[in-house]
């Protein structure tokens, strides 16, 4: 079984599976940077998956379907933001309620629209076409790994880089980070905190919906109950593991995607337990959380010691001066 486990096919299927996770995690990272813990990524993805395939069916065009899905994702993000900011609904409870709501409502409307079915597909729906990237496709190996996907995959990479530029090199990015670091201070500086947070949540909704659309019309062409199957939650984890940094998120999202692809691969070629591989990124996240906390604690301890030493030195100096 040595041959055929680590192959280029594995890498490219890993990158494919990483796409929805990267998009959701980017959304999560933007919200976290704005000081909003967004646990409703799963719902936004699932809504995107549902709306994309239904609208692709009714409008007869997959790209239009995705466009509508992204708009719906943004709307759900806006609703989330309004409930949080206007009615002061607890963020976590709100997220859990919306997750459950979308999980049930998507299936409800699938059944109302298309009859009592467990999953739905229609031959008229076109799957999003793959295309080769110019230049890169011609480079050996790299071309095989990084080319030949549909536009959502490329967009997820682009979004991570654009996210980095926006977050760290624009005015909006500075405002976003300021709001997340200290809301009150940002407010006194004249930053419109509400507007920044609403924008972050709407963008997150759109990114998640695009990730969901990737599942229903980009990867497969069907919709089934709980189609996202926890990928939104993985997105939350990947955002934390990537330290809310767009490039970090691109890497951790790919890590999660590769682990999933690897699990699928193991299942096909051997009798080894596949899911244990997927535990790896989860444990890594937990370890990262603990390490960061330990570092902060250590920093605090060092600072305190330095302060004490300075204090002791200062006292000595004052006694010398007193003499």
């Amino acid at each position: 079984m040595e041959d055929g486990v680590f192959t280029i096919a594995l890498l490219s299927s890993g990158l494919r599976l990483a796409t929805p996770v990267i998009l959701a995690a980017l959304g999560g990272a933007i919200c976290n940077r704005a000081g909003v813990l967004n646990l409703a990524l799963e719902a936004k993805m699932l809504l995107g998956a549902f709306v994309a395939i239904v609208m692709a069916f009714f409008l007869g065009n997959t790209y239009l379907g995705i466009l509508v899905a992204v708009a719906f994702g943004g709307l759900l993000g806006l609703m989330f933001a309004m409930l949080y900011l206007k009615y002061k609904v607890n963020l976590i409870i709100l997220a859990l309620a919306i997750n459950l709501l979308i999980l049930e409502l998507t299936v409800y409307f699938m059944r109302v629209l298309f009859g009592n079915v467990g999953s739905w597909a229609d031959p008229s729906i076109q799957r999003l076409p793959d295309f080769e990237l110019p230049i890169i496709a011609n480079i050996p190996v790299i071309g095989d790994v990084f080319s030949g996907y549909n536009f959502i995959v490329y967009f997820s990479w682009f979004a991570a880089i654009a996210g980095y530029v926006i977050m760290f090199h624009t005015k909006f990015g500075r405002h976003l980070r300021a709001v997340g670091e200290n809301k009150e201070a940002a407010e006194t500086l004249g930053i419109n905190v509400r507007r920044v947070q609403i924008t972050a949540m709407v963008i997150a909704g759109m990114l998640c919906a695009l990730g969901g659309a990737f599942l229903s019309v980009g990867h497969l062409t069907l919709f089934t109950r709980n189609m996202t199957n926890g990928r939104g939650w993985v997105g939350v984890t990947a955002a934390i593991f990537g330290f809310q940094h767009p490039i970090g998120v691109l890497l951790t999202g790919s890590f999660f995607g590769l682990a999933e692809a690897f699990a699928v691969r193991i299942q096909n070629v051997s009798d080894l337990p596949p899911n244990l591989v997927q535990l790896l990124p989860q444990f890594a996240t937990l370890a990262a959380l603990i390490l960061v906390a330990l570092r902060e604690k250590g920093q605090l301890w060092l600072n305190r010691r330095r302060f004490r030493q300075q204090l002791a030195r200062g006292e000595m100096r004052s006694t010398v001066a007193g003499d």
Binding site: A97, L101, L103, E104, Y108
Partner: peptide, 20 residues
């Protein structure tokens, strides 16, 4: 569709969360 049940429950939570 039986998902009506779950949807109603989700709405109830949403409404109770908007307690204010």
């Amino acid at each position: 569709p039986r998902e009506l049940g779950g949807s109603v429950i989700a709405f109830m939570i949403l409404f109770v969360a908007a307690e204010q």
